[in-house]
Design a protein around this nucleic acid. Sequence first.
RNA 1: GCCGGAGUAGCUCAGUGGUAGAGCAAUUCACUCGUAAUGAAUAGGCCAGGGGUUCGACUCCCCUCUCCGGCUCCA
Length: 642
Amino acid sequence: MDLRLPDQTIITLDPGATGLQAAEAIGPGLARAAVAVKIDGELRDLSRPIEDGGDFEVITLDSDEGLHVLRHSTAHILAQAVLDLFRGATFAIGPPIEDGFYYDFEVPEPFTPEDLEKLETRMSEIIAADQPFTRVVMSRDEAIQAFGDHKFKVEIIESLDPDEVSGTDEVTAYRNNGFIDLCRGPHLPSTGRIPAFRLLRSSGAYWRGDQAREQLQRVYGTAWASKADLEAHLHRLEEAEKRDHRRLGTELDLYSFPPQLGAGLAVWHPKGGMLRKLVEDHSRLLHQRFGFDFVFTPHIGREELWETSGHLEFYAENMYPKMQYEGDPGYRVKPMNCPFHVLIYQSRQRSYRELPMRLGELGGVYRYEQSGVVHGILRARGFTQDDSHTFCTEGQVADELKLHLDFVLTWLRDFGFDEFEADLSTRPEKAIIHEEERWDVAEAALADALEAHDVAYRVAPGEGAFYGPKIDVHIKDAIGRRWQCSTIQLDVNTPRRFGLQYIDSDNTPVRPYMIHCAKAGSLERFMGILVEHHAGAFPMWLAPVQVSIIPVADRHDEYARRVQQSLVEAGLRVEVDLSSDTVGDKIRRALTQKHPAVLVVGDDDIANSTVGLRLYGEDRDDRDLPLVEATNRLVGLARRPS
RNA sequence: GCCGGAGUAGCUCAGUGGUAGAGCAAUUCACUCGUAAUGAAUAGGCCAGGGGUUCGACUCCCCUCUCCGGCUCCA
């Protein structure tokens, strides 16, 4: 049989040769590094015979697929250790995930940190024993027999679609020593091939993610191709912790979450308030540039409004309860701005000549999030949407969607994000919408808009809002994490529910389409992402304090204040450090606060009208710089991006 | 909401069934200094809140609140 290698060379082997033998035929070094092989795109164990030729690739720990195999095998060993050490434990599922793996168990008592240490020790013993993994093929009935003591495994076996697994009524399992686990594989040749792993934490998880089902104990771990890689990964986790927006919020004095306010509710301190103002200003500016008019609407509205909009039907669990005095109709705090904008549209009769009508608002909304999910300002109960609603004709939909996408991408780029991925979410099953053809038009228009902007996207079938399909734009931050921010949703339902119409050129009433769009999503969440993305060291145009001035001694205070005055007149946000600390201490404080620019002024500067300039992130300073020149440079650096 | 962990000075954290500790920050004084911590002194606490057990609770038990890690959900 012939195997075609990735470089297109062909090697010829006897049929039935194993993947390992094939790797040896290529080279002994490769064979030693091999953890699995890939034949015609299918990952397989090294020890498994190859019957027919095809495209062949050796998988090592240098690739994501190799790490996937490594982590999957490590998860098996975790399960093996748990079953060894905990009487009465049974195991559910244990897949590899990004950067690691987890395994879910049903155990009488949750795992403690000490338990994790014991498990790591046991796993190390299993790895040291270098037990070979053996692939076992069995019939479904045999498998149910073999896993009879483990109810979750039996449930999995019974739910497997035979056609999907192998086209036969067979399932596979992997055995090492006395331990066997149901698994599609592939696995490492033996347990000794795991170079480095660590258990990270345990937590609760539901069987199949269903709150109504058993609560299991999930153990998270990670595994890497080398001890150095593991250390690097643990270091990255620490770095992520250092840029945690809650920690930086305290350190940089941006915002806090007073317990007296309740979960998910933040107060913004002066520096955080400045950050907000800058973000809000930019939002208003771009709205205006893209042809949106700003509106203002109240925080509460009659409950009836939410009945009409359908939110009480679909969204009630996230809404705060009704506020009502005796004899009045009862009010709800708004979780969304849409119905209010609809009311503006409806305030008088509309003509086709007025469309598209684009209404924008920085609207404060409140949502009752489950207590366990609130997370700083990334997931709050009160937040501000940079919301807009566009009313347009069917013929305008495609162009409007393109304009909205353009707006969204401009916004994100201005804040320093330039890697995007989009999800196109299509009609969900729960959508109780009669105008199906409108859904089809809408979904096609969104796909067109994405293609017109050359944004990579994937289709998420059935994940649209109940009122229409949507595009969600995800950004990648400085340490590679993906965040969902912007959303553009085409709404075919709200105009119908509110009976919206406009008078067309032929004097007939027509129902408009509606487009919901949020660029940041939640301004607070977006600012949290900004804090983590920049690790608190904002680009100069966003920095609450742009320049701090440090007089060397207190006889320089007056000059420092004059410099401040002159920079403020140039439009900069400037602080002077008038404390009696040493220069080194003041510098340290300015750097810790991540101020973009530091000006040190002393005797020479007073004599020559100069300053010493040091920029954040540059470990050097520029002395004897004429103040005029420094001002020009700083003003240039502080310019907003678009 | 569920599972687990936690809450001690503004921040980071020690501590123990017998009257509460450190570092940083703060305040005062001295120092007046040229690019990441000058020194000394002072002040600061209903040990999250409420019940209980106990001669005695910050410590043990129960409830509530808030936070953390997940599940689930989502902007």
